[in-house]
Design a protein around this nucleic acid. Structure first.
Length: 611
RNA sequence: GCGCCCGUAGCUCAGUUGGAUAGAGCAACGGAUUUCUAAUCCGUAGGUCGCAGGUUCGAGUCCUGCCGGGCGUGCCA
């Protein structure tokens, strides 16, 4: 089932082309700004009239006379300076609803993309030896939604969790694990003896016994970091040696590193499961994966004269980038101490994604502060001809999560707020609300509802904000029952489910009433409004996915829930007469399916049967 | 200094290649519950879209300048 707006766009554009005798015509069909203008409006005639220097209203008349859309709309009306106003026929609306109802694939009548692409999405990207914190929330959640939407439309999505598991800090990570082993050894005679006699065996033995969780590892890492900052030359030298050892693949260093990686990834996976994010172990492809390609990246850039030595470092100077003195700005791919950095890794990753993963598009979901980095990265990759003109590189950026004070969200002591603590508190608060509103539910149900609502609220708040702007984090707002929040959406869904449960006690067989449904009765305004909105779901997804903006989807879902709530208060369902009831049951069913699909399939937010 | 992002109702924010009278939610005020979950609905009030120019049939949206804020700006990611 084609999207209505696309069909209208095509037909009107064609009619414009016929009227104007040229091919570059765009109807620019949009939702009407006001119900009195109908459902859709075409804005393109005025621009075209200007281009071909003619009277826009006359042109509009010509276009309309060429136009055959009687299967969809009432006769179009020309208004104002040259708008074409379109009102959907009620037959068309009911036809669509029935088609959605009959969709056996449960896709709510939404078609897959005619030309599926291979799209790599790079997101989440936690770091080794660090707990996920609020800074990872947006990338993880928005990236996941983008993947889900693209996949639903039939694209081949390849998730890439580009974790920070290589580079400068790894010396300290190795040191941290080693410290943990020493701590273990200090009161263990056997390990003590091994330490002097057989260091290799000591490493294996102590690692086997070590039982660190990520929190403990992180705290060791932080201590190491602090010790380094204070500045002991010996210690500094030791960390540097560990880093070099790791980079040269010394087994001792590698097994410590690998242990830290395992501890970290295990905990991250817990977070993904808790967040209902689709990432798994197979999506992990961190910086370390590219470590052996870095030399070649720099070498190729140097050989092709794209990179040059400057102040000891190897730099690329892409066109159009200037520094503060107005001189060309470097994209450093190798430091003067010959170490590689994230620019190098990112270039290696681009090559891998295009050559091995066969990406048509690569989408990076990272915060807005990295904008310049990605602009230079893309420019460099294109200069090197590693990325063809037919391949799209997108930096999907987002703003920061702020605290009440307007500064990036931190704890009182100035640390990043841990994601786990944030989610725990959200669930805790949601639980208090469930307890208050619905104390009679069994405890396990209350817990499930609290988890769905609490975590859903955090995610939904993130989605519903325009991703490019910063937003102020507020439990009170995201858990509010009014407004564009997860609980409001979940409540609307729960109300429909409640009707369904009630139906059984009233001997109403919903399945039977919906199965043979052929005629609908949309006489009430609230019914018609809801019906029209339901058939637009595909348009909302398209808008959200084509600009990677989940807030378009949440805005649609919210409005849908509002229209449902209006319908719910005005139109009794189960007590309606036999002529009205099937239509109303269908509206309930399709609303529930749409909300569930949007929340649970596309946003990864659980719905609940009762609240 | 330069670059990027932003500035919309008291607050938080939507606003889709420039479209008709700029929209929500919160807060405020008024109303609706013998009725499928009131965790709801309906209504009222609230605006110089930072300021000043410009482009045009038409600007919150595009251009220029200014004011205010955030971020970035050669060896972190």
């Amino acid at each position: 089932m084609k999207r209505t707006i696309d069909t209208l766009e095509k037909r009107i554009s064609d009619a414009m082309a016929a009227a104007a005798g040229r091919s570059d015509c765009a109807a620019i069909v949009r939702l009407s700004t006001d119900p009195k203008f109908g459902d859709y409006q075409a804005n393109g005639v005025m621009a075209l009239a200007k281009k071909i220097k003619t009277n826009p209203r006359k042109l509009a008349e010509q276009v309309v006379s060429n136009l055959d859309i009687a299967d969809i709309c009432e006769p179009p009306e020309i208004a104002g300076p040259g708008f074409i106003n379109l009102r959907l026929k009620s037959d068309f609306i009911t036809g669509r609803l029935l088609q959605i109802n009959a969709d056996v694939e449960n896709r709510l009548g939404i078609e897959k993309e005619a030309q599926p692409r291979t799209i790599v999405v790079d997101f989440s990207c936690p770091n080794i030896a660090k707990q996920m914190h609020v800074g990872h929330l947006r990338s993880t959640v928005i990236g996941d939604c983008i993947c889900r939407m693209l996949e639903f439309l039939g694209h081949n999505v390849i998730r890439q969790n580009h974790i920070g598991d290589w580079g400068l800090q790894m010396g300290m990570v190795v040191q941290a694990i080693e410290t943990a082993c020493f701590n273990l050894t200090s009161n263990d005679k056997y390990l003590l003896s091994l330490l002097s006699e057989n260091p290799q065996k000591w490493e294996n033995e102590s690692l086997k016994r070590i039982d660190l969780n990520l929190e403990q590892l992180e705290s060791l890492y932080i201590k190491t970091n602090k010790a380094l900052e204070i500045g002991h030359p010996d210690f500094e030298e030791r960390i540097r040696r560990l880093l070099v050892g790791l980079q040269h693949g010394e087994t001792g260093c590698l097994i410590f590193w690998s242990k830290a990686r395992d501890i970290t990834l295990k905990e991250c996976q817990r977070m993904y499961n808790l967040l209902n994010v689709t990432l798994t172990g197979k999506d992990i492809r961190g910086e370390s994966f590219y470590k052996d390609d870095l030399h070649e990246v720099v070498d190729k850039l140097l050989k092709s004269k794209i990179a040059e030595k400057s102040e000891g470092a190897v730099c690329v100077f892409p066109d159009g980038f200037k520094n503060k003195e107005g001189q060309r700005l470097p994209f450093i791919v190798q430091k003067s101490d010959s170490a590689y950095l994230y620019a190098t890794t990112d270039l290696a990753a681009i090559r891998y994604r295009i050559n091995e993963l066969k990406a048509d598009k690569i989408v990076y979901v990272t915060d807005a502060r990295q904008k310049l980095h990605f602009e230079m990265l893309f420019a460099t990759a294109r200069m090197a001809k590693w990325v063809g003109d037919d391949i799209e590189l997108s930096h999907v950026m987002f703003g920061s999560v702020l605290g009440d004070d307007g500064a990036p969200l931190k704890t009182r002591s100035g640390e990043n707020v841990k994601l786990k603590e944030l989610l725990d508190e959200a669930v805790e608060r949601a639980k208090a609300v469930v307890e208050e509103k619905n104390p009679n539910l069994p405890a396990d149900k209350k817990q499930k509802i609290a988890e769905a609502v609490g975590i859903g609220a955090v995610k939904y708040a993130d989605y519903s904000n325009n991703r490019t702007s910063d937003y102020v984090f507020s439990f009170d707002k995201m858990l509010a029952m009014d407004g564009n929040t997860a609980p409001y959406m979940q409540y609307a869904y729960a109300r429909i489910k409640s009707i369904e449960r009630k139906a059984q006690t009233k001997d109403v067989d919903i399945a039977t009433e919906l199965a043979g449904l052929e005629r609908l009765d949309l006489t009430e305004l609230a019914e018609l409004e809801l019906a029209k909105y339901l058939i637009r779901y595909g348009e909302a997804i398209d808008a959200a996915v084509s600009d990677y903006r989940p807030n378009y989807l949440t805005a649609y879902l919210y409005e849908l829930a509002q229209k449902f709530s209006a319908f719910y208060t005005n139109c009794p369902v189960l007590d309606a007469g036999p002529d009205k009831r099937p239509t109303r049951l269908l509206l309930c069913d399709l609303t529930a399916r749409t909300i569930k699909h949007g929340l649970s399939e596309l946003l990864g937010i659980e719905v609940v049967e009762q609240m």
